[in-house]
């Protein structure tokens, strides 16, 4: 292990917080998906760090599964963005408000 595990966790936490902030603050659907990507990346960093800490290969396989899940999520997410853009000619999340109770 080249660095203490705590430093790696701090880096991953900062990245995760940035992604979460992007999801919560931005109103553009594409930017929200990018925020989700940043969060998934930080989770991958934690898994690789855990894999290096315990010197087991399992964490890296988890990252491989995470990549496949991300690819599926992005494919469906971007298809939904295209669909919503066809419906409303905009991808600002503020205008998708038909479901407010």
């Amino acid at each position: 292990m080249i660095v203490p595990l705590e430093h790696l966790l701090i880096l991953a936490t900062l990245l995760f917080a940035m992604g979460l902030g992007c999801v919560l603050v931005r109103r553009n659907l594409i930017m929200i998906l990018i925020g989700v990507e940043i969060m998934i990346n930080s989770v991958g960093l934690v898994l690789i760090g855990a894999s290096a800490f315990w010197q087991q290969v399992d964490g890296q396989i988890m990252v491989l599964i995470l990549m496949a899940i991300t690819a599926a999520e992005v494919a469906i997410g971007l298809a939904l963005v295209v669909y919503l853009h066809q419906q409303k000619k905009s991808i600002d999340v503020g205008i998708f408000d038909e479901m407010r109770g």
Partner: peptide
């Protein structure tokens, strides 16, 4: 590159 440094070249 961080992944490589942490011993995961394939990932």
């Amino acid at each position: 590159l961080i992944f490589y440094l942490l011993g995961a070249p394939l990932v």
